[in-house]
Design a protein around this nucleic acid. Structure first.
Lengths: 201, 201
DNA sequence: CCGGGTCTATGACAGCGGTCATAGTAGCCA
DNA sequence: TGGCTACTATGACCGCTGTCATAGACCCGG
C-alpha cells in the first residue's frame, strides 16, 4: 500500500485511489487529491487534462494493477500453493489492514462501480477492466494448482465476489467477521476443485 | 420493486433508495429525491428534520427490510426448499432486473457503505443493521432446511457476500456473468451443508 | 539575450449542494 | 370567527465543486 516517492503525477493517482476508497468518487475533490499528494493544484490540469474523469479512471486502473500484482506475491509467499491458501492470503491483506489501521477504506474499484456505473461509462469500463485484470492472475494461479481451466475462471470470479461482498459487510460492521467467514466457508470448496496433483485437504 | 401510492413521506424514502442505488449517496441530491417522488420540496425538512442523513438512513433501513422480506417470499415460491434454490432465487431477482431493465442500479446498502462508512457513522450503522436484518431470515431458512445452526449463519454471510460482490462485477461489466457464476459454483457447497432430511441433490 | 518547452500559481466563474428562514395554505376543532 | 396544527412553497445563504484563463517560474538549447 505504500507508493514510494515517485513523481507528482503518480502520487496524485495514488492519492486519488486512497481517497476514493475511503469516501467514494463523488465525495473526493480534485483539490483534496492534490493536497493529499502534496502536489500543486496547478498540476491537476497539466497532468490530467481530461479532468476528474481521467484522474478517477487512472486511479481505478492503478488499483486493478495493484491487486493483480499482489496475487503473484501471495503465490510466492505460500509454503505450498493451494486455492484456499491463496484466497486466505488475499483476504488476510484486508483483515490485517482493518485490524491495524481501522476500517476507513474499502476497495476503490468497488467505490468507482457504485458511484459511476451509471452515468460515467469510461469509469465503468475502467472498473470492469480492473476486475478482469485482477481475475486473470487468480484464475491462472488456480489452473497452475490443478484446477480445470473452465472452473478456474469461475472460481476466481467467485473468490473476488465473495471478497468484495465481505469487504462491504466488514466495513459496515467495523468487524472482520465476514471476511474470516468467507475464507473458512469457501476454502474447502476451492481445494476440492483441484483434480490433479495431491490435494492437501 | 414497486411501491404503491403511499404517502409522500414513504415515497421519498423509496425514491431516495432508488436514486442512491443508481448514483450513490453523495451524488443524490435532496431536491432530486423530492422531484423523483413527486413530492413538494418543502416536505423534505418537514418529514426529515434530520436532513439528508436521516433520509439516507431511512432509505438504507427500507432496503434492508425489503431484502429481508423477499427472502420469505422466495422460500414460499420454491417447489422444494434447498439452500441452492434459495440462493438462486435471490440472485435471479437481480439477473431478471438487469436483463429487463438494464444495469442502472445496484444495492443501496452497498452504495451507502461505500459512500458513508467513513465519515457518517449513523449511516454506517444503518448499513450494518440492514445487512444483519437481511442475513437473519436467510440463516433461519437454512436451518429450516437442515443446516446446522452455526454454519447457517456463516453460509448466509457467504451467500450475501458473494451476491454483493457479483453485483459489483456484473454492473461494471454490464453482464450477468458474475451473478450466474456464483450461483453455479456456490450451489453444490450450500446443498452439501444440509445434514438431516433427504437432500435434494 | 531570446524562444520554447514543462510545470506551477492564482484567481475567477458558474453551478449545485444542503440547509435555514419565512410565509403561505388547508383542514379541523371550538 | 379565531386559533391550532399539518403541510407546502419559495427564496436566500454559504460553501464547495470542477473547470477555465492567465500569468509566472524554471530550465535548457541556441
Amino acid at each position: 500500500m505504500a507508493a514510494s516517492e515517485r513523481g507528482p503525477r503518480e502520487r496524485m493517482v495514488f492519492s486519488a485511489a486512497q481517497l476514493i476508497r475511503r469516501d467514494g468518487v463523488t465525495a473526493t475533490g480534485m483539490r483534496e487529491v492534490a493536497a493529499h499528494a502534496g502536489a500543486p493544484r496547478g498540476s491537476l490540469q497539466h497532468y490530467f487534462p481530461g479532468g476528474k474523469e481521467q484522474l478517477v479512471n487512472e486511479a481505478v486502473d492503478w488499483a486493478g494493477r495493484y491487486a493483480a500484482g499482489r496475487v503473484g506475491r501471495f503465490l510466492a509467499q505460500l509454503p505450498e500453493p493451494t486455492p484456499s491458501g491463496l484466497f486466505a492470503a488475499m483476504v488476510r491483506q484486508w483483515t490485517d489492514e482493518y485490524r491495524s489501521a481501522g476500517f476507513a477504506g474499502g476497495c476503490p474499484v468497488a467505490a468507482a462501480t457504485v458511484d459511476c456505473a451509471e452515468g460515467r461509462d469510461s469509469t465503468r469500463a475502467a472498473a470492469a477492466a480492473a476486475f478482469a485484470r485482477w481475475t486473470r492472475p487468480v484464475a491462472d494461479a488456480l489452473t497452475g494448482m490443478g484446477v480445470p481451466a473452465e472452473r478456474a475462471e469461475s472460481l476466481a470470479t467467485l473468490m473476488i465476489s465473495a471478497l468484495e461482498g465481505a469487504l462491504l459487510i466488514a466495513r459496515s460492521e467495523r468487524d472482520v467477521r465476514a471476511l474470516t467467514t468467507v475464507v473458512r466457508e469457501l476454502g474447502p470448496l476451492l481445494d476440492a476443485s483441484v483434480v490433479r496433483q495431491a490435494s492437501g485437504g
